[in-house]
Nucleic acid binder design. Structure first.
Lengths: 250, 250
DNA sequence: CGTGCACTTGACAAAAATCAAATTTTGTGG
DNA sequence: CCACAAAATTTGATTTTTGTCAAGTGCACG
């Protein structure tokens, strides 16, 4: 047990979210681990560990849903196909997130690993038992769901902006906030392809590419490599995220 | 107690959602009441009834969140202001829905009544007590949250389509499914203004107006009155909802 | 029976989708 | 480690759609 650190080492299932109920001041929010060590241990009893390679399809839209997953490491995308061939990415999920949302007992979206992924797998039946036996645990799930709901609403907000540059900027800011614990990092890592970004942000691949170029040309950011971005002019960067359609106002 | 109907008369708090876990066949989903009569009664103990006139602002984005609401009758819109004056409508909510989602103890969105509204008001503190005392009740809240999450994802999906006519069509279909119990009604009632629709669908007011005209011109729908729409050609109507950007495909 | 607000419509500019081609990366097998 | 093929990304040229601005029109409510 030497070198043990409660906060940094994940020993079991871990769910991270911003507490919806504790009154805090506006400003940088803090993602915190919701599960106590005992709760994590309880969940571990019914969980199995699963690993997936990059590009693996973990679950498929429409398949019977028999389990919920909790990401330990790696990144996945949740995506749905439109009635015609369209692909829509509804979320990118990271360590500490849950996935496997269902409707009518079937998965709502397909899940694909963008990087190698490790996750805990909870059979829903066993999970439901655990939950009804432990009200606090259940409460933590509620908290996490509220978090994901807000996240989905942010996504909608992003999609509602009309200039692609704005969309991209908001998207990058979301990533920025995700990986930093309250403080903003200048360096952003992009685990997903341009095409995935396009499908998340609701535009064409070409438009995303051009938006990146615009940001680079304006000296707002730099990309040493396609998967990395560094924000050079944070002021201008944040200003861009606010630029929106005047007609939209009330 | 004469003329009493369990299913149609709301005697107390009522939460309606599609069950995520019960395995069902794809097709029309059925919204069901989640709370048993006892649960409803339990909630009623801590609830107060509140009424609002059309146009009233029930709660304001950023205000300290001290209560959660459950709509009995009427329609509300949840909306947020962008950093610049932009207005974004994140949801329209109806009888059986919950609102008052918070982050850091503050409301995430403003809530405005679109029609006269009756609702139950639960102080969060009292609600939290009730929830931890009753695991089943808590579970029903989880179910409802899952439902709202899927709803938010549908919203994102809608926003991601590129033609305004498609967005409008999807929007109308959502309304259609909401008010009919599984079967589709030809008649759709629009409790919200064109401007609200525009803010929900993520376009300009003008574009919405034109989209309505297009649908009318194509003989796909008829609008006796601005607040009512009748679907004439359901086949074409549903086909429109699928029309999307080919570039988006994988 | 006005007056104001909600909605429609038109004309033009701007942004994005689309189609297509060039270019860079990445992965693979020698 | 290199050459090559496949995939991902950038870029250009063109067309379509939508945003914008502004001027009607009609409905609702006092």
């Amino acid at each position: 047990m030497k070198g043990f650190r409660t906060s940094s080492v994940a020993l079991g299932p871990s769910i991270r979210a911003v507490n919806p109920w504790a009154l805090g001041n506006p400003g940088p929010r803090e993602m915190q681990q919701l599960l106590s060590r005992e709760e994590s241990a309880q969940l571990a009893e019914i969980a199995s560990t699963v690993k997936f390679g990059k590009g693996a399809e973990i679950s498929h839209e429409g398949d019977p849903a028999d389990a919920i997953f909790n990401i330990t490491s790696g990144v996945i995308k949740a995506h749905m196909r439109g009635p015609r061939g369209t692909e829509h990415v509804s979320a990118f999920l990271f360590a500490g997130d849950l996935f496997g949302l269902a409707q009518d007992g079937r998965y709502v979206s397909s899940i694909t690993a963008l990087t190698p992924v490790t996750a805990y797998r909870f059979p829903i039946r066993a999970l439901a038992n655990r939950l009804s036996a432990n009200a606090t645990l259940e409460f933590h799930f509620i908290t996490k769901l509220c978090h994901e709901l807000r996240q989905a609403q942010r996504h909608s907000f992003l999609l509602a902006s009309n200039r692609t540059v704005t969309k991209l900027t908001i998207f990058l800011q979301m990533l920025q906030q995700l990986h930093s614990g309250g403080e903003l990092t200048k360096e952003i890592y992009l685990p997903m392809s341009r095409s995935d970004i396009a499908d998340y942000v609701g535009t064409s691949l070409a438009a995303i590419s051009r938006a990146f170029r615009t940001l680079r040309t304006l000296g707002i950011l730099r990309s040493p490599d396609r998967r990395h971005v560094e924000v050079l002019d944070n002021t201008a960067f944040e200003k861009l995220a606010c630029e929106v359609n005047p007609t939209h106002s009330a």
